[in-house]
Write a protein that binds this DNA or RNA. Structure first.
Length: 459
RNA sequence: GUGGGUAUAGCUCAGUUGGUUAGAGCAUCGGAUUGUGGUUCCGAGGGUCGAGGGUUCGAAUCCCUUUACCCACCCCA
């Protein structure tokens, strides 16, 4: 028989059981943290009608989307969780209570070329708050608090949430009479970090911006200092918008409000900053935008970003649904943590808390003990294979199970079980029930004290 | 989509100017050792050298084509 060489597609992450256990633990942490802020869980299909996903049309999305036909149906794999949310809210808005807060962990797909830290299938962990017609700016200040708590709960300390406001940028461009080029300019300054000021200025001029305007832009985004100092420096652009909307002034007030409330929400000054170069590629953002990077690993890019949008579902409904949300690139985050050796090896990755090894043909007591353990919440594996003793112990070692229970003829005759602590090798005889409560106690203690990550290598 | 690199055992890789039967470490399996593991020792299995073509007496090695993967750009989480 000709065998086919098994392979996993490039850009698709597949983990061994131990790593998967760590991944699942991180996902649990995200879910519980999101829940703390009153977000409800949501799940939507991975496949949608292409016309729904591509309602906005054009651009990178169309190039990168996985699209196929099944019968007469034109179908696509979702490339983010925001568009499916828009669809969901448009369909169900009559039955939802607004502001609607939902979180969603799910796989998304992008048919771009894979590279370091960039995947074609990856998890996003999104939260969004959707308002009915209106949504207070306070929600925009709450979002970074959730990012902060999520990351610190995971055990991360070295990250920075960078905040900006699109209205500030758009208002500024309006002052320079460059509104028609706003998207291009934002795109260019967004790359400042990567390409440097010289090249950034050159690109602006190349894009048709006058030298004077380019210098204005460069000095605008070069504003530095603390958040308070930046806000103060921005005051000099106030009242310069000629149009009725006064968009810069509105944006500046929003940015000030957000920044002022962040410490009240529990985000320390050290972990956020105003960064006037943050623009975000997606053009539906209209207000506050966020980007979070690991300060020790800037090369990997943003691991969490998002922002405020005014009209989530405009392609599906007349209803005006403003919102704010962020997305954590979970697969990328996990990839960095794994690569940097930051994933704790203290975490329990064993699929079981105890392995019961029958030492005799008479398996009844072993099975009964397994049943008793399971009824009491102990993750129990029963080793049924007819292998040599050494093989059985090797198996116990490999899965990293903390306890082994032997049940042989002696145990059956005198009605006890032999419990062995695999960490220190200690071994003792106990009644089934005593063994059960002993193991349960130790396991519970370990679970609660477990850290997900260790940062020994964080300098 | 654009540019560069790599491809030899399950994994990480050696393999000389082209020359006998292509090697190592790790992993796997068996034995030393049938109620006490991680160590050690001994042994075994495992390869159409990515695929196709060419040059040559002879190709893992040189040439061409192709595919896959990796890195970077674009873009993004």
């Amino acid at each position: 028989m000709e065998r086919i060489k098994p392979r996993t597609l490039s850009g698709f992450m597949e983990l061994l059981p131990e790593k998967q256990a760590q991944m699942e633990r991180i996902m649990e942490t995200l879910r519980s943290t999101y829940s703390l802020y009153g977000f409800a869980p949501l799940d939507t299909p991975i496949i949608e009608a292409s016309e729904v996903l591509l309602a906005k049309g054009g651009g990178e999305t169309e190039k990168q989307i996985y699209r196929f036909e099944k019968g007469d149906s034109d179908l696509s794999l979702r490339f983010d969780l925001t568009v499916p949310l828009a669809k969901y809210v448009a369909i169900n808005c009559g039955q939802l209570s607004f502001p609607f807060r939902r979180y969603q962990l799910g796989k998304v797909f992008r048919g771009e070329r894979a590279q370091r830290g960039r995947f074609r299938e990856f998890y996003q962990a999104d939260i969004d708050i959707i308002g009915d017609g209106e949504l207070d700016v306070m929600n925009e200040a709450e979002i970074p608090a959730i990012i902060y708590r999520t990351f610190t709960t995971l055990g991360l300390t070295k990250f920075k949430i960078r905040v900006n406001n699109r209205k500030v940028l758009n208002g500024f461009f309006e002052i320079l009479e460059l509104s028609d080029r706003a998207a291009d300019i934002m795109h260019t300054i967004d790359k400042l970090d990567k390409i440097g000021t010289e090249k950034c200025r050159a690109l602006l001029i190349e894009g048709g911006v006058s030298e004077n305007a380019a210098d204005e832009i460069m000095s605008f985004i070069a504003i530095n200092g603390t958040s308070a100092e930046k806000l103060k420096a921005l005051e000099k652009y106030r009242n310069k918008n000629t149009t009725y909307s006064k968009i810069f002034d509105v944006g500046l007030k929003e940015l000030g409000d957000v920044v002022r409330h962040l410490p009240e929400f529990g985000v320390p000054e050290s972990h956020f900053e105003i960064d006037l170069t943050i623009a975000r590629g997606l053009d539906y953002y209209t207000g506050t935008v966020y980007e979070t990077t690991l300060t020790e690993h800037p090369e990997i890019g943003s691991v969490c970003s998002g922002g405020r949008y005014d009209n989530l579902a405009e392609y599906y409904t007349d209803k005006k649904l403003p919102g704010v949300g962020i997305s954590i690139g979970l697969t990328r985050l996990f990839f960095v943590l794994e690569e940097q050796g930051m994933l704790s090896n203290e975490i329990i990755t064993s699929p079981a808390d105890v392995l019961i090894i029958p030492m005799t043909e008479n398996k009844a007591k072993a099975i009964e003990t397994a049943t008793l353990f399971r009824e009491n919440g102990i993750r129990t594996m029963l080793y049924s294979e007819q292998k040599k003793f050494k093989s059985k112990m090797n198996f116990a070692d490999k899965i990293g199970v903390p306890f082994v229970v032997f049940i042989g003829d002696d145990e059956i005759a005198d009605n006890f079980v032999t419990v062995k602590n695999m960490k220190n090798g200690h071994q003792f005889k106990k009644s089934e029930k005593m063994a059960m409560s002993y193991i349960k106690g130790v396991v519970t203690l370990r679970n609660n004290s477990d850290l997900i990550l260790n940062f020994v290598k964080e300098k």
